[in-house]
Design a protein around this nucleic acid. Structure first.
Lengths: 138, 138
DNA sequence: TATATTTGCTTGCAAATTGCAAGTGCAAAT
DNA sequence: ATTTGCACTTGCAATTTGCAAGCAAATATA
């Protein structure tokens, strides 16, 4: 089991110990905003994560209680990754990264999403968290 | 000049291309929440960043317009790093990381800060942004 | 004026992480 | 019985990180 080393007691630092890399939050983004849940789906994202890096991150995220791994409902040879409540609590972080990137970089955002977030951030965050919770039941 | 490679047009991904590592946001945290501004001060933080990594990150952040480098007011042999408006816009990201870390990890937070953030996130963000702006004038 | 110290880096090198390509094992479909 | 799909694992090269030391210019001290 890979233990996570904590560099300090600062909460920003502690969050970055787990989330501070180029891939982890993209996996969580895929679950929340793209409704993805399987290894194969994560591999298909535009950023092209390497297979070993994906496997490593999924293992760390599961070990840290950010997501759960379960046999898929339809196929026993397939796994379904879902966010825990701790994982759902990262949605505000992802949203702020999204807003910053959309404001300062050349990006493409799903139509309506920016407006929805700007109109009411808390409500939008709650909505996407709830959607992810409901998917976990199917 | 180190060019930043963009993995996709997703705004979350674009933000992580620049901010997605273990050190960059800690430097910004030090400026916003600890009032730091010099190379030597950044080196003294609890997380102990390596000198070459710090030099590299400061160069990237300056090149990307997140911070500005200027000769210090008191000493010509000293430099002062300050946030640009683009840099100040990362404060909400840092705040969300702080809140997540404080909720889910064993951390120590300055007394009153959590209460201040929970009482009114937007107002607190605006306050710390304004404080950083004012420091830039001294 | 000479010497020491402060400040902000740079350099060299070992260790760890990442990226790429290929391969493996198991379940399910054909 | 064989092939396909899915979830990884493995090997290896390239990049990034961490650590220790060194360096150069500006300032402080003797």
């Amino acid at each position: 089991m890979k233990e996570l080393k904590q560099r300090s007691t600062c909460p920003v630092s502690t969050s970055l110990d787990l989330l501070g890399d180029k891939w982890t939050l993209l996996i969580l983004r895929d679950i929340v905003f793209a409704g993805k849940s399987t290894y194969g789906q994560f591999l298909q994202s535009a950023e092209k994560i390497a297979t070993n890096v994906l496997a490593d991150r999924l293992a760390v995220l599961e070990a840290q209680g950010i997501l759960t791994k379960a046999v898929a409902a339809d196929k026993k040879s397939k796994f379904t990754y879902r966010l825990t409540e701790k994982g759902l609590d990262t949605v505000p972080i992802i949203v702020e990264l999204l807003l910053w990137g959309a404001k300062h970089g050349p990006t493409v955002v799903a139509p309506g999403l920016l407006e929805e977030l700007r109109a009411g951030k808390d409500a939008a965050v709650a909505k996407y968290q709830q959607l992810a919770r409901e998917q976990a039941l199917t």
